[in-house]
Simulated scan of single mutants.
Amino acid sequence: MQKTMNVGVIGLGWMGRVHLRNYTEMPGVRVAGVMDSDPAALDAMHKQFGVPVFDTLDALLAQPLDAVSVCVPTVHHLPVGLAVIARGIPLLIEKPLAASAAQGRQLLEAASAAGVPLMVGHIERFNPAVQRVRELAAEDKVISITIERVGPYPPRIQDVGVIRDLGSHDIDLIRHISGSEYKKVFAVTATTIGKHEDTALITAEMENGVLGQISTNWITPYKSRFIRVATTTRYIEANLITQQVKAYSRFQDYNDHYTIKEWPVLYREPVRSELTAFLGALRQGTPMPISGQDGLVVLETIERLGVC
Results as ranks from 00 to 15, higher is better:
residue 158 Q to S: 02
residue 162 V to R: 10
residue 190 A to F: 04
residue 166 L to G: 01
residue 191 T to P: 00
residue 103 Q to Y: 00
residue 162 V to W: 05
residue 165 D to I: 12
residue 129 A to E: 12
residue 158 Q to A: 03
residue 109 E to I: 01
residue 128 P to Q: 10
residue 130 V to K: 07
residue 183 K to G: 13
residue 174 I to S: 11
residue 179 G to V: 14
residue 175 R to A: 12
residue 176 H to M: 01
residue 115 G to V: 02
residue 159 D to L: 05
residue 163 I to N: 07
residue 110 A to R: 09
residue 173 L to D: 02
residue 181 E to A: 14
residue 110 A to S: 14
residue 184 K to Y: 11
residue 179 G to S: 08
residue 180 S to Y: 04
residue 182 Y to N: 13
residue 149 R to F: 11
residue 115 G to L: 09
residue 143 I to Q: 10
residue 101 A to L: 11
residue 116 V to E: 00
residue 136 L to R: 09
residue 143 I to Y: 04
residue 138 A to N: 10
residue 169 H to K: 06
residue 109 E to D: 14
residue 114 A to K: 15
residue 188 V to A: 11
residue 177 I to T: 14
residue 169 H to I: 08
residue 108 L to D: 04
residue 105 R to K: 15
residue 139 E to C: 03
residue 174 I to D: 07
residue 163 I to E: 06
residue 192 T to A: 02
residue 179 G to E: 08
residue 134 R to S: 03
residue 192 T to N: 11
residue 184 K to D: 14
residue 186 F to W: 11
residue 186 F to V: 12
residue 114 A to H: 10
residue 169 H to V: 12
residue 116 V to M: 00
residue 114 A to W: 02
residue 148 E to I: 15
residue 101 A to W: 12
residue 178 S to W: 03
residue 116 V to K: 03
residue 188 V to K: 07
residue 127 N to M: 10
residue 113 A to H: 03
residue 162 V to F: 03
residue 188 V to P: 00
residue 138 A to L: 09
residue 194 G to V: 06
residue 180 S to G: 11
residue 143 I to M: 07
residue 124 E to K: 13
residue 146 T to G: 01
residue 194 G to R: 12
residue 129 A to Q: 11
residue 191 T to W: 04
residue 155 P to V: 15
residue 172 D to I: 13
residue 185 V to M: 09
residue 128 P to E: 09
residue 165 D to Q: 09
residue 136 L to V: 12
residue 178 S to D: 08
residue 171 I to R: 04
residue 160 V to C: 08
residue 108 L to C: 11
residue 139 E to K: 09
residue 110 A to N: 09
residue 117 P to H: 05
residue 113 A to V: 02
residue 148 E to Q: 14
residue 163 I to K: 06
residue 117 P to V: 12
residue 109 E to M: 04
residue 112 S to A: 15
residue 107 L to M: 14
residue 190 A to E: 15
residue 114 A to F: 07
residue 111 A to I: 14
residue 118 L to A: 13
residue 123 I to S: 05
residue 174 I to H: 01
residue 122 H to E: 14
residue 177 I to D: 09
residue 103 Q to M: 01
residue 159 D to W: 03
residue 127 N to L: 10
residue 194 G to D: 13
residue 109 E to Y: 01
residue 132 R to C: 09
residue 150 V to F: 00
residue 166 L to A: 03
residue 115 G to P: 08
residue 139 E to G: 04
residue 106 Q to N: 12
residue 135 E to M: 07
residue 114 A to Y: 04
residue 136 L to S: 06
residue 192 T to H: 13
residue 179 G to Y: 02
